[in-house]
Computed example of a mutant assay.
Amino acid sequence: MAENLGSVRRDGANRVVMRFERRLAHPPAKVWRALTDTGELAAWFPATVAFDATPGARLRFDLTPEAKRRLDIPSDLDTVSAGEITRSEPPHLLEYTWGEEVLRWELRPDGEGCVLVFTDTVVVDSGEVPDDPAYFAEAASAWHACLDALDALLAGRPGTVAAWDRAAELRGAYDRALA
């Protein structure tokens, strides 16, 4: 269960970087579509996204109903947040903000597939994100599960990975890794 665990490390006094690396059996162009197409994002990303991969484009995120339920957020609470595309070099590099976070997706060809390196850089103690290992264990397990769901989508098995259940399975491994 603990294979492919991501890493969580401090990067300066007020930033934490979660990093995940996956070998995917799909070319960068196919993975790029899954990272940028609103319909494909809906199958694995933890929020609905109004997405335009043009540098400078504004993004709109809203937690899914399942995310709200699992996070104990009232269903009628407004969870819309904003972001912006900071870098876009199809099909190799995509970077954007989501609130106080910077999400970076790097794709490099590897044989008939590619290697995906995903990093989520978070500013801690910003008022939005606590400086708490438990918070990052939960966040890392959730991203890990989302990447499992992305891999299932790319393999033609969308919906076969219950990301929230998978994140709960992974939580203990990330708690131990951050202890």
Rank of each mutant, 00 (worst) to 15 (best):
residue 2 A to R: 14
residue 5 L to Y: 04
residue 6 G to Y: 05
residue 8 V to Q: 01
residue 8 V to H: 00
residue 9 R to H: 13
residue 11 D to N: 13
residue 11 D to W: 08
residue 15 R to K: 13
residue 16 V to C: 05
residue 16 V to F: 04
residue 17 V to I: 13
residue 17 V to F: 03
residue 17 V to G: 02
residue 19 R to F: 00
residue 20 F to C: 04
residue 22 R to N: 00
residue 22 R to P: 07
residue 23 R to W: 00
residue 23 R to Q: 10
residue 24 L to R: 01
residue 24 L to C: 01
residue 24 L to G: 00
residue 26 H to K: 11
residue 26 H to P: 00
residue 27 P to S: 04
residue 29 A to T: 12
residue 30 K to A: 03
residue 31 V to K: 02
residue 31 V to P: 02
residue 31 V to C: 01
residue 32 W to D: 01
residue 35 L to T: 01
residue 35 L to G: 00
residue 37 D to H: 03
residue 40 E to H: 10
residue 41 L to Q: 02
residue 41 L to V: 04
residue 45 F to Q: 01
residue 47 A to K: 07
residue 48 T to N: 14
residue 48 T to L: 13
residue 48 T to E: 14
residue 49 V to E: 11
residue 50 A to M: 10
residue 50 A to P: 05
residue 52 D to H: 13
residue 57 A to S: 15
residue 57 A to L: 12
residue 57 A to P: 11
residue 58 R to G: 12
residue 60 R to T: 15
residue 66 E to L: 15
residue 68 K to W: 04
residue 68 K to V: 09
residue 69 R to M: 12
residue 70 R to C: 10
residue 70 R to T: 09
residue 72 D to T: 13
residue 73 I to R: 12
residue 74 P to G: 09
residue 76 D to W: 15
residue 77 L to V: 15
residue 78 D to E: 10
residue 84 E to T: 15
residue 84 E to C: 14
residue 85 I to Y: 08
residue 86 T to H: 07
residue 87 R to L: 12
residue 88 S to Q: 11
residue 89 E to S: 13
residue 90 P to S: 09
residue 91 P to T: 05
residue 92 H to C: 08
residue 93 L to G: 02
residue 95 E to N: 03
residue 95 E to M: 14
residue 99 G to D: 07
residue 100 E to F: 08
residue 102 V to C: 09
residue 104 R to T: 10
residue 105 W to L: 05
residue 105 W to R: 07
residue 105 W to C: 08
residue 106 E to M: 13
residue 106 E to Q: 15
residue 107 L to C: 04
residue 108 R to E: 14
residue 109 P to T: 12
residue 109 P to Y: 04
residue 112 E to N: 11
residue 113 G to T: 06
residue 114 C to I: 04
residue 115 V to R: 11
residue 116 L to P: 07
residue 116 L to Y: 11
residue 118 F to I: 10
residue 119 T to N: 06
residue 121 T to R: 13
residue 123 V to L: 12
residue 126 S to T: 10
residue 126 S to Y: 02
residue 127 G to A: 08
residue 128 E to H: 11
residue 128 E to N: 10
residue 129 V to W: 02
residue 131 D to L: 12
residue 133 P to S: 06
residue 133 P to C: 06
residue 135 Y to C: 03
residue 136 F to H: 02
residue 136 F to C: 02
residue 138 E to A: 12
residue 138 E to D: 12
residue 142 A to Q: 07
residue 142 A to I: 01
residue 145 A to G: 05
residue 146 C to G: 05
residue 146 C to R: 01
residue 147 L to H: 03
residue 147 L to Q: 04
residue 148 D to P: 05
residue 150 L to E: 05
residue 156 G to L: 13
residue 156 G to E: 07
residue 157 R to P: 00
residue 157 R to C: 04
residue 159 G to S: 05
residue 160 T to D: 14
residue 162 A to E: 14
residue 163 A to K: 09
residue 164 W to S: 05
residue 165 D to F: 03
residue 166 R to V: 01
residue 168 A to P: 03
residue 168 A to V: 06
residue 168 A to D: 09
residue 171 R to E: 02
residue 172 G to A: 15
residue 173 A to K: 03
residue 174 Y to G: 01
residue 174 Y to N: 04
residue 175 D to Y: 03
residue 175 D to S: 07
residue 176 R to C: 00
residue 176 R to Y: 02
residue 176 R to F: 01
residue 177 A to H: 09
residue 178 L to H: 03
